[in-house]
Amino acid sequence: MLSFVLIILVSFVFTGIVIRTKSLASGRKGPGVFQPMKDILRLFKKGAVYSETTSIIFQIAPSIYFASIIMAILVLPFGHYKGIISFSYDFVFFAYVLAMGKFFNIISALDTGSSFEGMGASREALFSMLAEPAFFILMGSLALLTGHTSFQEIFMTFHFGSYTSYAIGTLATFVLIIICMIENSRMPIDDPKTHLELTMMHEVMILDNSGFDLGLILHGTNMKFALYGALIANLFMGNLPLYYSIPLFIFIQSLFAVVVGLLESFSARFRMSHNAQFILVLSSVSLLVFFSVLMVMGKFN
């Protein structure tokens, strides 16, 4: 319950911090941290316009997308406090509930019949597909290391204070940050500020959405950021008591937002053809994590 509330709260300001960091890094003052949220509230007040060629899929997809993210948040624990739902192998559930949301997003893009949206959808599908093995190898090695299979148990046991756990935690953080950037179509993969449809991925998919639906999708992105931030924070919180862990959580989330802002300010977007190999590096890195876990465990000797 705690994690749910905290993640929702953080999601309100996350993109604000990112945008603020980017403005400061480029020497501007920038909008306040609540500005993205105000934009989304403005969108919520509007009605939606649907094209005549679209079917019911297009109308329900944003809601399903949003709901899938909420579902994913439900399974996230907070330190040793369980999430609202918790069961063995819930990380599989986590990954595929997000994938389902993405799936609906993609078919709604196809539903519009626009060639741009189809193109964006295919790119997004490809990159998410490539990022998936990285996430599973990572979670698999964490599960192997701790011997547990649910988020809450993994994170509770993971934090046993030896330097290897910190090392693996650092590597895992690296992988998770990049996965998060891919899932949200951010900088090294995709530029959210781009103005040419041919080079867009995520933005071109949601060209036809408007009003309330658009608001849902935009806030979905904020929540996904907070979601991955929570995962990263969990790697380092472990068994800490609440009066340490809540400030730590907030701190890690803001740090994550600042890092995302800095990444976006100082890195250039890859050429589209380089994206695939960059994402595959993640799988290789998580394979390294897996090997080092095997070595720490003394398996294979």
């Binding site: 330097y163 650092t170 380089h274 960059f278 890195v285 390294l288």
Partner: peptide, 21 residues
């Protein structure tokens, strides 16, 4: 500590593989 450095070293090989310049 050495293990971490060695793993980072291996990662550098991966980045070598995708380096363009």
């Amino acid at each position: 500590m050495i293990n971490i450095l060695l793993i980072v070293f291996t990662m550098s090989l991966l980045f070598f593989a995708i380096g363009n310049r």
